[in-house]
Structure formats: C-alpha cells, structure tokens
Write a protein that binds this DNA or RNA. Structure first.
Lengths: 107, 107
DNA sequence: AATTTGCGAAACCAAATAGTTGCATATATA
DNA sequence: TATATATGCAACTATTTGGTTTCGCAAATT
C-alpha cells in the first residue's frame, strides 16, 4: 500500500481535516462534527494521515487528541522548491523562447 | 470526476512526468521512454495533468509537445502558505505549549 | 500510392479508495 | 455495578484509478 504525503493530501476531506487540526488538537468525534461522513470514516482518514507522519496523537483518558505534525508539511515545500526556482527565475521566459526556437528549427 | 492539482500530483509517475517536462517540452513518446509503462498509459497521465491545467500542448506536425504550466504549481504554494506561516512563526511553540496547558487542565 | 509513425480514444481489468454498518474494548459516569 | 461514551478495527460495497490491448486517424516517409 502506497502511503506518502502527496497521496495523503490528495483527498479534499483530508485537507480539511489538516486545516482544522492545524489550529488546535482535536478528538475524532469533534473533527467528525465538521463533516457529513461517519466518525469511522474520519477515523480512517486520521489513520492515513498518521501513517505518513502528518499527525501525532495524545491520549487524554479515553479521548485521543490529534495534532498536526507541521514539520511534515515542509516535505511538500521541499518538493516545490525545484519548481519555485523555475517560476521565480527571470530566465524562465528566456528558456521558453529558446525551446520554441529549437522546435521551429525542426519544421 | 474530481480533477484538481492535488489529485494530479498524488501519483508518483505523474510527479516524474512533471519533473521531466519542467526541464523542456517533450512528446508523449519521448516521455514514455523514461517509464516502464505503455505510451498509452503515459498519454492518460498527460490528459489528467492537462485537465487541471498543469500542461499545455503545442502541435508540431504530427508530434505534440507537452510543456509544464509552471504558474499552476503556484496553487500548491498558495495552499502551503497557511502552514508555512505556522512553521515559520516563533509563536508556534508557544501555541503548542498553551494547548498542552489547556489539555492538562482537564485532567 | 502504400507504409510507417505518433497520437488519442475506447473497452476492459485488477487493485485501491472512500464510504458504510456492526462490533469489541477501554474509560467515565450514574 | 450497570450504563453511557470515545475510539479503533473488520467486513462489506460502490466507485475510482492506473494499467493494458485494440483500434482509428492524420501526418511523415518510402
């Protein structure tokens, strides 16, 4: 079973859960109140998010508080870095122009 | 059919295709040479990436050059922004500490 | 003109996904 | 002690996904 952060954030419900938890740690029941799906479905999302280390748990009696592991989000940022370099570069447009010249040459 | 950029980058093959095309525009055949799947499978990935405006096409005779629409990648960056604010903030640790105090109070 | 090449579309398939219901268990509370 | 609550897990289901093979078409090549 593939389980990485990109697959984790692919689901819109999971992105909403991440946004919720980013503000403050919450229990599965409290989270589920914000969605139209069952608590069990939320629990499965929490498991998926936990499996790729996006969440950490803290048990408080019979309640479990889920909290966002914000550092893990940096992985996406790191992946984006290579593309950020492209769009921030002023040579960007030049490259495109050169590629077009290359293609036109073939015609 | 759901089709957004987060679902598009969820697949590792598609992320590789994005990385390839980021360097220079390529034809489906040329892209497929880099993978162990059929050209048709690559074509389906290209369609998915195109459907969420991550790629643009340029026809050159019977060849089609696919190019990365780098601006679209900024959407991910924008989504990350809210979390970047969290991890870059020095109040980050304070918030966590306050949340813990809150929870401990309940015990 | 006949053939090869580059491509997309369609039909099909196995596996993964996101949801459900039902259940077991541990902790609070009456 | 009996009951209510919070949670995770398992079994099941419909849909989506990522791949395949087969096909048709248009552009290049012979």
């Amino acid at each position: 079973m593939r389980r990485d952060i990109f697959q984790a954030i692919a689901d819109p419900t999971r992105r909403s859960i991440i946004a919720l938890i980013a503000v403050q740690a919450m229990t599965p029941n409290a989270i589920a109140e914000n969605f139209d799906i069952t608590r069990q479905a939320v629990s499965k999302h929490l498991r998926i998010l936990s499996e790729c280390d996006l969440l950490k748990q803290e048990q408080q009696g019979r309640e479990i508080y889920y909290q966002l592991e914000i550092d893990k989000m940096k992985e996406i940022d790191q992946w984006l870095e290579q593309y950020r370099q492209i769009w921030e570069s002023r040579f960007d447009q030049l490259d495109t122009y050169l590629a077009k010249l290359q293609k036109d040459k073939k015609q």
